[in-house]
Design a binder for these strands. Structure first.
Lengths: 193, 193
DNA sequence: GTCTATAGGCAGATAGAC
DNA sequence: GTCTATCTGCCTATAGAC
């Protein structure tokens, strides 16, 4: 086998790009193959179905997210870690305005498709929310409040992304990020507002 | 003509229901016809294209939203009006957990399709945001701050809807609604925090 | 004016050639 | 083990029958 994993990975990466931009439904196997420079139709040698390809793509994304969180975790200070989390959204504001949130968009699509798909896609959100809640606990929240604050922070960012995408206005994500960071500062200073 | 407008409206209503549940891509003309009890294929007598049908559906939705805002406007108090706005999300939390936000979902789909579609769908958000900003002005905000607060309030609700949908958890919308209402009270009491 | 039969195209998937 | 030619089915849209 001449580097089977190479083409396989190229297909996963192409699917990742295209599905972020065009969504699951409007991204065809043929397009993914073309983008990956793999002969069309040949995709089914590497993946039995389109769904299996996307499953592999989601798994890779989720691993990426876990690795990212581990990287942030090297900082000990929860306030700083939360700030870095929000910063990531600010930094990707242009991409978000143009194509929406990769995770949120996929969850949206997955919810429509149903099956095991939605759980796979939602796992990324679950991981991120649990991580966020842990940071709020470290800041002094009890479990319940930490969960609520995690959900609030993330809701703001995802909602802002939706509006930024709808109006093609990266500034919306940036404005809400700034607001959240100010809130984090006030939280950390005054041990709960 | 034996009540041309009757079948036409039935098709619009069927499209509205189905597209909310399954999204634009996964809702076929044949399904819409079936749901509306109109002979399949006959749809094209009433609408030249699928896009035209959806345009009509969006126009109806947008009119509905404007009427709803006019109704709320009968209350003079901006704080009460904003509370009623948030209440609407709380009341529809179950539907939101099951099928997502009808407006947000459509904007999402429309962004992928492109063309004149995205503007049509986004118009509802624009109308709602402008209305929200007006209420914040009445509460004492300057224009810029009112716009920011409108966007923030709505972002929270749309983000919460996304998570509620992803996790099939209406409580998420309810929790964020409660949080927003507490915030509105604190805003109105203390003329800006 | 209303509806049906069908065209035309593209999607996902497969069988089998190289 | 790798790739291509092709099948089947569904979707949008139309031409023309009633």
């Amino acid at each position: 086998m001449t580097r089977r994993s190479d083409k396989r990975m190229r297909l996963i990466l192409a699917a990742n790009r295209l599905i972020h931009r065009k969504g699951y439904e409007r991204t065809s196997i043929a397009e993914i193959a073309k983008e990956a420079a793999v002969p069309p139709g040949n995709v089914y040698y590497y993946f039995k179905t389109k769904e299996e390809l996307v499953d592999a793509m989601i798994a890779r994304r989720n691993a990426f997210i876990s690795a990212w969180l581990s990287d942030i975790d090297k900082d000990g200070d929860p306030e700083l870690k939360l700030t870095r989390f929000v910063d990531e959204f600010e930094k990707t504001s242009k991409s978000r305005a143009e194509h929406g949130c990769p995770v949120g968009g996929l969850c949206h699509d997955a919810n429509r498709i149903g099956g095991t798909f939605a759980d796979q896609a939602g796992a990324a959100f679950r991981t991120l929310l649990e991580w966020l809640a842990r940071q709020f606990v470290e800041l002094g929240d009890d479990q319940e409040r930490a969960k609520a604050n995690a959900l609030h922070l993330f809701s703001v960012l995802e909602g802002a992304t939706l509006f930024a995408h709808t109006f093609r206005e990266p500034g919306i994500v940036e404005a809400e990020s700034a607001r959240l960071k100010a809130w984090l500062v006030s939280l950390a200073t005054s041990q709960q507002p």
